[in-house]
Amino acid sequence: MLTAKQHELLQFIQQRLEATGISPSFEEMKDALDLRSKSGVHRLISALEERQFIRRLPNRARALEVLRQPENTTRPAVANDVTPARPARTTPEPANDVIEVPLHGRIAAGLPIEALEDSRSLPVPAALLGAGEHYALEVSGDSMVEAGILDGDYALVKRTDSARDGEIVVALIRGEEATLKYLWREKGGMVRLDPANSAYDPQLYPAGDVLVQGKLAGLLRRYN
């Protein structure tokens, strides 16, 4: 049996899909159901998914498909009292949501500069991000141009404290300065941070001076 809120959410999702072909965002669902937080939406979505009223579309973050509806809306629904959902009009497949990720200042792609923290956020298509926690940094400098990372780009970073040799990482140096570079571990307890620009030299530091704060997951570029 669906609860009143589960039924209300199912109807809202179906109506939005029929009207636009795009599943509503969690924020829109929260507002439509007058919930206090998105965690309530997550619980309702999970319950509907477990009962096979909806499914999450693979490789499309937060995109939903309605599989079936209760037979009528004037009495409580029961598990076996269902009919296939009315097919939506010919509309595009639900599109990816946009996720707001924290934007933490500027990061050097040349010489290390201090990483600035602020309270801004950056809207990012969910398809660009995989699992895990992410943040964004604005690139400053040209030392990674041969890797296709340009001054003014936004680096999308997966938060992690570990990385393999050869990966592009955000490295915090001596707890004060951050830089975007290829990571290599050298013999003798040294870490080498390599640029992707032949005009720049690699940077060598004792391993204890370098802290990995994330790995490059993607890029956003604004064309003016």
Rank of each mutant, 00 (worst) to 15 (best):
A4H: 11
K5N: 12
E8C: 03
L9D: 00
R16N: 09
R16M: 08
L17V: 01
E18R: 14
E18Q: 11
A19H: 11
T20P: 04
I22H: 08
F26M: 14
E27S: 06
K30G: 02
L33V: 07
L33Q: 00
L35H: 04
K38Y: 08
G40F: 01
V41I: 10
R43L: 13
L44A: 03
S46F: 06
E50T: 11
R51K: 13
R56H: 09
R56D: 09
L57W: 00
P58W: 02
R60I: 01
L64E: 03
E65A: 02
E65G: 00
L67T: 00
E71W: 11
N72K: 07
P76K: 05
A77L: 05
N80A: 13
D81S: 10
P84D: 08
A85Y: 00
P87T: 01
R89W: 04
T90K: 12
T91Q: 12
D97S: 08
I99K: 10
I99A: 04
V101S: 09
G105H: 06
R106G: 03
R106V: 06
I113L: 14
I113W: 05
E117K: 15
S119F: 13
S119H: 15
S121A: 14
S121C: 12
S121V: 12
L122R: 15
V124N: 14
A127N: 14
G130M: 09
E133F: 15
H134I: 06
H134R: 10
A136W: 07
G141R: 07
D142G: 01
M144C: 00
M144E: 00
V145R: 04
V145P: 02
V145L: 06
E146Q: 06
E146N: 06
D151L: 01
Y154E: 03
Y154W: 10
V157R: 08
V157S: 04
R159F: 09
T160N: 04
T160P: 06
D161V: 04
D161E: 13
S162K: 06
A163P: 02
A163V: 02
R164A: 12
V169H: 04
A171H: 08
R174N: 12
E177L: 12
E177D: 09
A178M: 07
L180E: 00
Y182D: 08
Y182G: 02
G188T: 13
G189F: 15
G189I: 15
R192F: 05
L193F: 07
A196C: 00
N197I: 04
A199E: 07
Y200S: 03
P202C: 10
P206F: 13
P206C: 10
G208Y: 15
L211S: 15
V212P: 07
G214R: 10
K215C: 14
L216M: 03
A217L: 07
A217S: 12
L220M: 12
Y223V: 14
